[in-house]
Design a binder for these strands. Structure first.
Lengths: 222, 222
DNA sequence: GCGATCAAAATTATCTATAATTTTGATCTT
DNA sequence: AAGATCAAAATTATAGATAATTTTGATCGC
């Protein structure tokens, strides 16, 4: 191991694979072969198997006994499901975070909002959007809730990158603005209602498939 | 391996340990030593480590790199957190399940409700209560959502057994009845509102600690 | 040529062994 | 006797090897 490993090797492998799956570098349905991955990361397969269990828990991979692990597939119904869960849980988190929101936190969110609107590629937008949402809900201090929301954001990002691979046009997100304004005015109910609607905003985009045909691709864009 | 292993050994170990942690057989904070557990299950420690990763994802254990795994501790704030998450997600699931609820499903829930009210010990009550909730939300067919709810129920059960160890007195749960009635009448909003309140019902009970003092123990009893 | 069948190859799941880290406990100092 | 120090023991994390299962691909029959 050339790196001064802070975390365990299994954690590093899990992170690296998660990144690839989210970015779409590895296609859904692809088999993750432990010996190949072990070789690539210059370890044995034991930490690789542990990494698989983490990916499985995040919903990024599915494992069938004796038949190995493959990158999880998804469809429109799962996109909707994740959007609905995000809406429900982020609303809950925001309600609990509200009493702890300070001017400094709202300023941080404001910066994230600006970065979001200024983003010229999908990766930058996703990062800023995630930061916006995270900043507002993190002060709730509920670890289990935040961890679940993080996993949902990972799933969201995957759907997004799958549909928008690279093209992206800058656009002003009025919901973000409304949420921030409402919070600044102490109007939690408006903020919560806007967020609930916002997180379920699903965009459609035509995507050329391998066979040359065009199909609709869906992703959460809120 | 004497058992006709359908699942992988790691899965069986994870289940067995989860049961013990939920039942309170292993105290919070206890270290889970992989070699000891491997010896007990007559395997090597490799599947044990994989089982640990599963327990970690469920929130039943926490792992510190190079310092092993221990049974997760919890406090009142986590009980509240799990209750709030359950309320939010079960409401979401019920809304999506509602269109698929049939008379047969409602009858199954009715049976679970009766078992609940008739339960004379805490384990029987927990099983029936979980069955009641599961029956009503399962028809939503949202796998990720249902899996998350299941994990929350496991946490709930743990809190409950920690506070109520064995004593339990039969009581009629009016919320269960109201939810079923509302669903039978097609009044989803009443059912949802009652469920939202119900899942956050937290009971307190005096518990004698190891030192002989008495403290309050809290658990979700809905 | 197309599908079924079976053997070889690849892959998963597990075990045993080893290196590295942390915990334990006994000793020494004050 | 209380605290610090250090070595031994226990434990975690990883590597390498093995058994069992699945997948692949070539052969055979129709």
């Amino acid at each position: 191991m050339t790196k001064p490993a802070e975390d365990t090797i299994a954690v590093r492998i899990a992170r690296a694979l998660a990144e690839r799956i989210i970015a779409g570098t590895i296609e859904p349905g692809t088999r993750l072969r432990q010996d190949h991955i072990a070789e690539e990361f210059e370890t044995s397969h034991v930490p690789v198997r542990e990494a698989f269990r983490r990916l499985e828990a995040q919903g990024l991979a599915i494992s069938e006994p004796r038949r190995g692990v493959r990158v999880a597939s998804f469809d429109l119904s799962e996109v909707k499901e994740v959007a609905a869960m995000r809406a429900a849980l982020e609303v809950l988190a925001l309600r609990h975070a509200a009493p702890h929101l300070t001017a400094a936190i709202l300023d941080k969110a404001e910066q994230a909002r600006r970065d979001c609107d200024a983003a010229t590629d999908v990766r930058a937008w996703e990062e800023a959007n995630r930061r916006f949402h995270r900043t507002l809900v993190a002060p709730c201090g509920m670890k289990r809730l935040l961890a679940t929301i993080d996993d949902l954001h990972a799933a969201s990002a995957r759907f997004l990158f799958s549909a928008w691979r690279s093209e992206w046009e800058a656009r002003t997100d009025h919901d973000h603005r409304s949420i921030l304004n409402a919070l600044r005015n102490g109007d939690l109910e408006t903020a919560v209602a806007t967020l609930a609607r916002h997180a379920q905003w699903i965009g459609e985009r035509p995507v050329r498939t391998a066979s040359g045909a065009t199909r609709g691709a869906f992703a959460i864009v809120g």
